[in-house]
Amino acid sequence: MKSSEEIFAILKEKFGDAVLQLNTKLPKEAVIDVAPLSVTDICWFLRDNEELQFDSLTLLSALDDANGEKVTLEDGTTEFKGGTLSVVYHLESMKLKHKLVLRIFTERENPEVETVSRVWACADWHEREAYDMIGIKFLNHPDLRRILMPYDWEAGYPLRKDYKNPEFYHGMKVPY
């Protein structure tokens, strides 16, 4: 059983700059920030290393941080320019009974993250949901389609903070 500090030290030694920092100031959870394009390598290491053995991905969640510049458009609605989206990975080792939270930040305009769906099979659907709801593009994902929304939904990504309900869906009026 290892604490987040120990795991951070191991990762920092192995991956250097790709492991950005350890946040312990956030209440309740210690979070390790890593770089979006090296997350797959880090996850393979976390899963297969003898001392760590993170065999289970409990939850993968995507967030809209809404920290960009708020722009008011002509029709009175607001939109965010710049800022970040983030993806949070809750990992757990069922053998060694320790937990870890990884987080990555990615640009709002070009949200590209490496997939971990080959490391843990359940990440496949989690990542599809993150793509569906927040619009994060997982590179090298085997089948990145929408999962809960209709496949032909064109109005954007619903869980973004500046999402606007569409007036029409394929020419049909949306009734509310």
Binding site: L26, K28, E29, T58, L59, V88, H90, V101
Partner: peptide
């Protein structure tokens, strides 16, 4: 609640139900 984040889970009849 104060600023922060939490992942908390319970054992549901179907499996692990977690709220982040």
């Amino acid at each position: 609640p104060p600023e922060g984040q939490i992942y908390s889970r319970v054992e549901n009849p179907k499996g692990e139900l977690g709220f982040f």
